[in-house]
Design a protein around this nucleic acid. Sequence first.
RNA 1: GCAGGGGUAGCCAAGUCAGGUCAAAGGCGCCAGGCUUAGGACCUGGUCCCGUAGUGGGUUCGUGGGUUCAAAUCCCACCCCCUGCACCA
Length: 872
Amino acid sequence: MEEEKLIELWEKEGRHLSDPDSRPKYFITAAFPYPNSPQHIGHARTYTLTDIYARFYRLLGYNVLFPMGFHVTGTPIVTMAERIKEGDPSLAEVFEKIYGIPKEVYSKLTDPFDLVMFFSREIEEGMKRMGYSIDWRRKFYTSDPHFQRFIEWQFQKLYKKGLIVKGTHPVAFSLKLNSSVGAHDTKGDVDPEITEYTGVLFETPLGYLVTATLRPETLYGITNIWIREDEDYVVVEYQGKKLIFGKKAWEILQHQLPGAKIVDEIKGKELLKLEAEVPITGQRVPIWHGEFVDPEEGTGIVMSVPGHSLWDYYEYRKHTDQPYPVIIKVGNKESKAEDYFKSHGGKEEDLEKLNEEFYHLEFTKGYHEPLGMPVKEAREKTKEKLKEKDAMIELYKISNGPVYSRAGDKVIVKVLENQWFIDYGNPEWKKKAKELLASMKIIPEEMRKRFEHTIDWLKRKAATRSRGLGTKFPFDKSQIIESLSDSTVYMAFYTFAHHIKEFKPEELTEEFFDYIFYGIGEPVNEKHKELRKMFDYYYGLDARHSGVDLVTNHLTFFIFNHAALFPHKPPKAIVVNGSVLMEGKKMSKSMGNIIPLKKAIEQWSADVLRLTVAASTEIIMDANFSESTARGVKERLEFYKKTFLTEDKGKKDELDEWLEKKVKHYATLAYDYYRAYEVRKVTNLLFYELFKDLQWYMQRKPEGKRNLSEVARIWAIYLSPIIPFTTDYIFRERFGESVFDQTLPMFREWKFVHEEEFFRELLEDIRHLLKLKKGKKLYIGIAKEWKFEVYKRLSRKDAIKDIVSQEPKAKELLAKLKNKAYTLDFPYERERLIEYLNKNKDYLEKELGLEVEIGEEKQKYALPDKPELLLE
RNA sequence: GCAGGGGUAGCCAAGUCAGGUCAAAGGCGCCAGGCUUAGGACCUGGUCCCGUAGUGGGUUCGUGGGUUCAAAUCCCACCCCCUGCACCA
């Protein structure tokens, strides 16, 4: 296979290695892969686009560095290894069915390190096979001790700038796994969602009863408090207060109130004797038994608002027929739970559903009477007031629950104490990040807003985890740096990654890196000095390529961290691309429509994939991979290869002039399209349009008389970033050197005019006419001179009234043209057209099998762009 | 809910920023013809409606208004769809 030979050749020629020299540099990167499974064609999109631009900038004469590493941190790798060890049957689905990895092979990957090595090798091979022009000498794993020293440096710096802070934080947690859990740790890959709700404190002689609610604003309408007389309650000491919770509820809630201790236990019955004071209003309410109260839900204690909760109303009526307050209006009418319940059937089994609808209704449309504001605002206002009075605590629950962990237990919310954060909420830092963003090029520009918004709402981000792979957190060695946080500035490491190994990890102190990055202090030796030079030469990243899904996290962190650590070497551009669809559908394991990259290359070749996956659609759109487009690309590639490898040395004539002019025209536009990251338009012209032009050319000119040398040269150079294999192969075969040793030829053929174009359209019109009517002789009547004159003046955008006053006959013509008159652009000269047509009369006659005569129009119908066609 | 993106012919999808050559590129599907023993692939033509010795008329670009000589494109309102909302790569 010729692609593989070329890869060997490129490697031998050292084409993709980059070292500092006198040329301007271009440093381009894409997010490094996470090696816990093989790659599929979806992964190929970002990398191919990156490679296209690496190759494009090389053609422009830049010293391009395109490196690659592997991200070996976090829990998914560990989890995968564990699942293999456990013999998880669902893995067969992925590894055997989709990727064709035999069980004997993958079942050995029970050690995370083996797993990483296996898949990273696989991925690296795939990337080479795709023709990515990566400088592999610089490859590193984030698990390398050298790299970890670099990450420690990063965190020391952030810490010293006050950007690392400590606090508490709620996380989804599994007690059995003793770890916080993300989607990949749960059954069915459910992402646990956490909602915050309010614990309102009601004072009683025994302590504060804590009720859990999502609607604190309703406390203005409280009539009583619900508990279960048949359940046990606990008194807990927390931050100097005695709080009362249901005993079962406490089992879960204890994880949310760190430091709380049980000091007493009470029977539910005992509570019934008490009275509670409502915060804010100071009202005193009784405590009643409520049958519907779930002892495991919330706090096991519920505040009763019969006016605005269907449950409360229903239970309230069992106890008393006393009236109760109504505090919310919808429209201008009192909004009463009772009315809503009754008007919607009044069935007990509908309570749950109706209650939810009613909540939603009051939240979106309700007006809160006591506070005199919409319910939405009243909720926040009430919380503020409660906080002032120190009468609330924040509680959390899993809102999309129950969610079960891999180990089988129910996922709960735990509040972590002494949690370390990167403080993206820091206003100073936000400002710097925004400034950096403003100075950067964002492709496509529409994405900028999303970045701005993300910078705005980003708050503290947890920086450590207790489990998984990664660098130990310098300020608490029991913790590991969370894996999105250790990959924000790693691009800087590439600039010297292959040389830093000459130092021992323990030599890589903070000062060591300070010297490299900031030039502070003295170099320890010559090599150290050299590392600084390398960094200085390459950094400022010129372009960061990534999938669109990383905008709201990785890419924004990337901006923040560079603003803080590398303000003197800011990144210049972020390029964001869409993903890949399979036959119009999203790729997913369950649909089984994932094509492994390896298999796809075997079937289609790398060039076919590169073009279909990366260059067949605009950069931000999702590319659609389908058999039929891939097939179309493959056939065209073969056509080009065949055509351009056939060495015809015919004499150049007008037709060759036409085609050469046309490729140059395409190339002129293509250059701008490349620069604007509009790859699809490049392929549209130089791959699809030129394909049609070539066919026309070949139809017009018999074999043996053709001369495609210049066309092939321009074509190959311009498309070499996209289809490097085909173009380099053709170039070497035909011109004896590599296409990658060429510089990009530039043209200024902005507007394309050639009589051949006119001729081509004319032939189409004639063919159309011949469908409708047969004849033996064709008369082509060219429009009269004055019509050409009018066309010319219209093209020049002369005032229409001037044209008419000079040539009264033009009126009729203009009436016919209607709106087209305003935009007409007709570049042909009458004499030259007639001459050109006469020259090609023989071809017409032969092609049409008709006698052809060319002359002046006989009737009035002819227009300069549409000659009169008369069949006899 | 908040934020971002989007609604174009049977389907997918250009065009919208810079209004006019836009009945609207391209692809798929479908129809007819060619090639072929046949199928596939490939090639040619057609594919909103009417008309036709071609370059003609009518009605279309989520819905309803507006601006303009002229709107898929600009302005206003409304309807619908998709994505993200974190500690997870």
